[in-house]
Design a binder for these strands. Structure first.
Lengths: 221, 221
DNA sequence: GCGACTTCAACTGTTAACAGTTATCACTTT
DNA sequence: AAAGTGATAACTGTTAACAGTTGAAGTCGC
């Protein structure tokens, strides 16, 4: 590799690893081998270790002393705690979005719903992707960068845990209905209602994920 | 020095630096010199860099490319955004505390209030410390480790920013009244009211901090 | 005298070699 | 044969040396 752009190797590695973790290319629970990974990425262990430490404090990896890093792994109880945090953040975001009530943001919100509906009508299962799009649009509408940042972190953790058991897109139609109701409440500036809807929505998603975890093999090998 | 316990130098450095940052020993806005700091701490730059990177992703430091790390610094707008996040998290925590309603936690909450009141009656200005104690007790009562973790991060950032201008303990009596009302609402299980009280409390604290920032020299040197 | 260009120094970014620790595997002993 | 103990190997934790870049200071030219 020409390595022409060596501007911030560690930063690049954070992004590379993040992609691999989110895509499930490195599954939840696997141990990270520093020298092997460093060789594969054509870099030395220094920047890699820095990248790993950042991902650790982002919650995608956990650090076991003298054992290196393993990909974040969560039992149902952990997932409940995670969703408590997510709910706290996203209900607040829904409130803020309803209060701000910016026209452009609201049309973006509705657009996300329409895209989901089209894919769903076409029988596609990619709704998991568009689900993220909707929540992203809602965070944009909330216009609170700090909250957005934290929500994104939680989403990442959930994605990593979810990547183990492959829930294709089972919660699609129910979620879509939730989304559309939410978009309407926000469009009409009903902050409390938006928060309630968001809480209910996340409760449903949570329950489904827990059930899915207990259904498939959530135990270790 | 022999440093007999070399178990996790980078981890130790994270704690050491965190202390220095929170105590204001390293003021907001100052640049970190890696080699100088490494020499002072009797370690090499490797672990120090890792510690720095972790503190960066915790928000206590910010990373300027090819310029190293500088201690987190916030203008009033940034502080507003920070308090939006804090409010989202702590109102949720107040709700959870009121729902859980554990007796031991509630007595701990009241104890924190009493300690504040005693110090205030004695004319002491250490209430800033006991303020943190109260919020910590409330988070314990919420029993949501993830939320607690995130709130603590935001608190840290606020402390660092606050360390620049020295607000000794001006918002003491008003805050104490807020705390006592909050404790009562939680004790009676009034979740919505607790959330409202927390929101109002944080609004007041926010406004006071913003005013204090604009009052003293918030500009750079 | 003022401005632009060049050179140098300091600091970050990166790499490779070194030390310590833990886990595994084989060997011995009961 | 099973269990315990010791040695070896692999991997993390740490250190010191190297390269590249940026910023500043000093000098030369206009």
């Amino acid at each position: 590799m020409p390595d022409t752009l060596q501007r911030g190797l560690a930063v690049q590695m954070v992004e590379t690893l993040r992609e691999r973790l989110l895509s499930g290319q490195i599954a939840s629970g696997t141990r990270i081998n520093e020298v092997e990974l460093a060789r594969e990425l054509n870099i030395s262990r220094g920047p890699l270790r820095e990248a790993i430490r950042q991902l650790v404090s982002e919650g995608l990896l956990v650090h076991r002393p003298n054992k290196g890093a393993v990909v974040f792994e969560a039992e149902p109880d952990e997932v409940e705690a995670l969703f408590e945090l997510r709910s706290a953040l996203e209900t607040a975001a829904a409130r803020l979005a309803a209060v701000r009530r910016d026209r452009k943001d609201i049309t973006a919100l509705r657009r996300a719903c329409e895209r989901s509906r089209k894919l769903l009508a076409a029988g596609r299962q990619f709704v998991h992707h568009t689900d993220l799009d909707f929540h992203r649009a809602l965070l944009d509408a909330a216009r609170s960068p700090r909250i957005t940042e934290q929500v994104w972190r939680v989403h990442q953790q959930i994605i990593v845990v979810r990547s183990r058991q492959d829930v294709p897109g089972s919660h699609t139609d129910a979620s879509l209905a939730d989304h559309e109701e939410l978009a309407e409440a926000i469009a009409e500036g009903q902050a409390d209602r938006a928060a309630e809807l968001m809480e209910g929505h996340l409760d449903r998603v949570r329950l489904q994920m827990i059930a899915s975890m207990k259904g498939s093999g959530a135990s270790r090998d």
